[in-house]
Design a protein around this nucleic acid. Structure first.
Lengths: 231, 231
DNA sequence: CCAAAAGTGTTCGTACTACACCCATGC
DNA sequence: GCATGGGTGTAGTACGAACACTTTTGG
C-alpha cells in the first residue's frame, strides 16, 4: 500500500448574482480562469490549485481562490471529491471541490480581464477536465439547498429587503414566487430580523430592511459543521 | 505549488441492522477493525486503507472494504473528505470517507474475531484519529437521507414486507411510526412493487411481500449520480 | 374462538397556494 | 391622484397525524 503517485488539487465553484444585460433581473454567474499551462492551456477552468500540506483543505480552497480571483466568499462548503483515474491526461489527480457564494458587491470588485471572467451559469464555454460536470452538480446543490436552508443571504449585502431576497430565490430556483406568501414564509424564521430602517430612494413605497442573525447557522450541515468550514 | 507530502486514504462507515440481544428489535451496527500498526496500534478504527493510483476512489473504498471486512455493500456513497493538518500524528493524511449500507444477511456472514467486530452505532468504543466524528456525521446523513429517499431497502433482503420496511425506518430514525400511515406513504411510490407472494410461517395473517424496482434510482444524488458510485 | 398483525376508512388540524385587497411613496 | 411595489387578510386545498375499524391467519 502507501502510494505516492496521486496529486491532490483543490477547486471551487463560485456563484454570484449579477443583473442581466437586457432585463435588470439577477442571474447566476460563475467566474472562470484561463489555464496558463498544459493540459488545456488557454482553456477555461475552475479556479483552484494544488493542496498545500501545511494548511487544511478549506484553507487551500480559500487561498487558491484569493490567488486566482481575489475573492473571499461569504459562504464556503465542500462539494465533492473527484478521483476517476482518467480525469487528467497528465497523471492521477484527485480534486477536492468546494462551492462558494459571494455577495454581488464583492463580485463587482473582481477585475475582469484576459485571465478571469464571469459567465452565466447556464451558458458556460467549453471547460477543462471534468469541470463542466462539477459546475452542473454544484448548481444542483445550490438549488436544492436554497429550498430548505437560508444560504440565500450569502448572495446579498449586509442588509436587504424581502423583495431582494425573493429575487435571489427566483433567480436561483428559476421560478416566480408569490410576494405575499414568500414574505410570510421568510418572516416566520426568527433568524430574519428587521433593522428598523427602510430603503429609500426607490420609486415607490420604501420597503423595510432586514438582516440575518449571524448567531444562527446558515444551514444544518450536521455534526461536521463549523469545523474548518462554514466561514 | 505541487506538493507531494500529502498521503491519500479511503475509509468507509458501514451500517447494518442487527436484532438486539434483549428485545428482538433491529438496531444500527457498525463494523470496526483493529489497527495493527502505529499510530493507535490495537485501537479500533474504521475499515479503510490507502488510495491506489490505478483505481477510482469508490473502487478503493470497495477494495479496502473487501480486504478488511469481506463486505460488499449494496449501497455506497461518498460522505466527506477530511483534511485537517493535525488529524494524524504521523503526517499529513487526507481521507476520503464513504458510507455504505449492507443487508442483514450479508452482515451475518462477516467472521467476527479479534480484528473485526460489530458495535451499536450509539455505543462505540474509543476510536482512532477523528473517526468518532466521522461516524457521527455518517449517522446524521443516514437518518436525514432515510427521510426523503428510498435507501432503506438497501438494508433489507431482495423481498420484504411493509412491516419490515417500517421497522428499518423506526430503528434508523429512532421513532415509532403508525403502521397504517406508513403503509400508505410507501405504497404511493411506484418503485415499490408487490411480488404477489406472501410471507408465510408467521403467527398471524401473512403479509404481502414487496420488492423495489431496481430501474428506479435509490436516491437523487444530482448530476453526479451513477458515475463511479451508487453501484 | 381468540390474539395479534395486516390492511382499510375517516376525521382533524396544519401548512402551503392563490388571489383579493389596502398602504405609502415618487412622480 | 395614479401607478407601482410594499404589505395584510382570507378562502380553498393537499397532505400528514391520529385512531377506529375490518380482515386473516395460527394456535
Amino acid at each position: 500500500m502507501g502510494e505516492g503517485a496521486i496529486e491532490l488539487a483543490v477547486s471551487t465553484v463560485i456563484f454570484a448574482l449579477q443583473p442581466e444585460a437586457g432585463t435588470g433581473r439577477p442571474s447566476i454567474r460563475v467566474p472562470l480562469v484561463r489555464r496558463t499551462r498544459a493540459p488545456f492551456e488557454g482553456g477555461w477552468a475552475l479556479p483552484g490549485g494544488w493542496a498545500d500540506a501545511r494548511e487544511g483543505l478549506a484553507a487551500s480552497a480559500r487561498r487558491t481562490l484569493a490567488e486566482t480571483t481575489g475573492l473571499e466568499p461569504a459562504y464556503l462548503e465542500q462539494l465533492y471529491t473527484l478521483g476517476a483515474v482518467d480525469r487528467s491526461p497528465t497523471g492521477r489527480v484527485v480534486s477536492v471541490v468546494y462551492w462558494a457564494l459571494v455577495r454581488a458587491e464583492e463580485a463587482e470588485a473582481v477585475p475582469e480581464g484576459e485571465n478571469v471572467a464571469w459567465f452565466p451559469a447556464e451558458e458556460l464555454p467549453q471547460l477543462a477536465f471534468d469541470h463542466a460536470r462539477i459546475v452542473e452538480y454544484a448548481l444542483w446543490r445550490l438549488r436544492t439547498k436554497m429550498e430548505y436552508s437560508r444560504i440565500a443571504h450569502a448572495l446579498l449585502g449586509e442588509t436587504f429587503t424581502i423583495s431582494e431576497l425573493r429575487r435571489v430565490h427566483e433567480a436561483v430556483r428559476g421560478v416566480v414566487l408569490d410576494p405575499a406568501n414568500f414574505r410570510r414564509h421568510v418572516e416566520s424564521s426568527p433568524a430574519l430580523v428587521p433593522t428598523g430602517e427602510r430603503l429609500t430612494g426607490g420609486a415607490h413605497r420604501p420597503p423595510r430592511l432586514y438582516r440575518y442573525d449571524t448567531e444562527v447557522r446558515l444551514a444544518d450541515n450536521g455534526p461536521l459543521d463549523d469545523t474548518e468550514e462554514s466561514r
